[in-house]
Design a protein around this nucleic acid. Structure first.
Lengths: 228, 228
DNA sequence: GTCTATAAGGAGATAGAC
DNA sequence: GTCTATCTCCTTATAGAC
């Protein structure tokens, strides 16, 4: 699967840091604002402003409800200027989704450490959950805007999703193998563990607590789900 | 909060049964078709066909991406005919969302039975999870289209959401009180238990297994999360 | 209650000046 | 690289015939 001809100027998406706010509704995050600091390496700055504006708008209203005028005005530009940096609104979504999926996978890969399957599971769930809280605007786009991707872009992202799923499944399988976990339904339990963290993107707002504490709580809950 | 002047002809939404199909993508349900059998008591039949068409379309593409032409054509009508039965596209969403929230709450209320908190929790999680699987098209609209509701309609639905949350929290509190549960963070664990079931709406397709088995698995996982 | 026709406005994307 | 202006198409919703 080629990345095609876009972006043309060596744009690189590298994670840094993200701050966010949100207006809470019971059990649901209906609004959010993202700081541009995560996207520091998207160049030039105008492309980065468009991208962060798009993340905020997509997270807050959804892809379809977001207009190119909305994205452009968040970046302080006219609608036409968007097309100098991105060939379409969908490409903007794809860049965000691809970066977000890769970031989530990287988080898991570097968290898969520890002497026992229990340690590894706790580390994985803690990191994956905290990422979904910390980066909940990006995570909302990643988890809930897949249907707006073109079939080709969806296929590319689905490959990364499979790798994410495999990362969790392997730890559970290892724990079953060495007798430290009791898992009646491996695929079902894998999905449940992933599910718990992913759903954080739906409801998280900063007033719900800090991402690290949430990660610890969820690591504990996930471990309890499988321990013998 | 009044139900206002709509619907004008004593339309009643009563749960019956629902069958569904979906095209699977890795970890995500991007397509779904709902049978009209759940909405049997929405009268007249034309209003019911519009409603079921709207459920399918909203679940598959989201509220904003769904056009009134799409809904009308699924019901075998011209776009204009929609407005004889519903005053706007948003009202159609509200009817679905209100019915869905009430149905989910009723499921919980009638499942809150058993001699011990553990029995009650297993029954609640099993029923709530199975409902989200069985009625995953409705559940998708219920859980993921809240932002498209008008502020007044959102407020009405938020009241029901609070009742749903309270239902779970009370059982956990009862288990902590009688010593059968160990819960470090009651609101956080309540949210996690709800979250596990709710996220089923995002990924469930019939090929993932039957709703009852999934309910049993999730009841077990939720119980493990809190037992001493 | 359903249709055809259409109003009124907004959408994504492009042209061409600067 | 950004702007203003605009193209073309599609949107929600209404008017009025049958």
């Amino acid at each position: 699967m080629t990345r095609s001809i876009w972006p043309p100027r060596g744009v690189r998406l590298v994670a840094k840091r993200l701050l966010s706010f949100a207006r809470p509704v019971h059990g649901v995050n209906v609004s959010a604002v993202t700081s541009p600091l995560v996207w520091e390496h998207v160049q030039p700055a105008a492309a980065r402003r468009l991208l962060t504006g798009a993340v905020d708008a997509f997270a807050e209203r959804g892809f379809q409800a977001t207009t190119t005028r909305d994205i452009a005005s968040r970046a302080g530009m006219s609608p036409a200027a968007l097309y100098v940096h991105y060939p379409s609104k969908e490409r903007l979504l794809f860049e965000i989704s691809l970066y977000g999926h890769n970031a989530a996978l990287e988080i898991l890969r570097s968290a898969d450490t520890g002497p026992t399957p229990a340690d590894r599971l706790r580390s994985l769930v803690s990191a994956f959950t905290a990422w979904h809280a910390q980066h909940h605007t990006i995570a909302r786009v990643v988890q809930y805007e897949l249907a707006a991707l073109s079939p080709e872009h969806l296929a590319e992202v689905a490959t990364i999703r499979r790798a994410i799923s495999t990362q969790i499944e392997q730890v559970l399988a290892d724990g079953v193998h060495d007798g430290s976990f009791a898992v009646a339904d491996l695929p079902g339990t894998t999905l449940a563990v992933l599910s718990l963290s992913i759903d954080v993107a739906r409801w998280y707002t900063p007033h719900r607590g800090d991402p690290e504490s949430l990660g610890k709580l969820y690591a504990d809950l996930a471990h309890r789900m499988v321990q013998t």
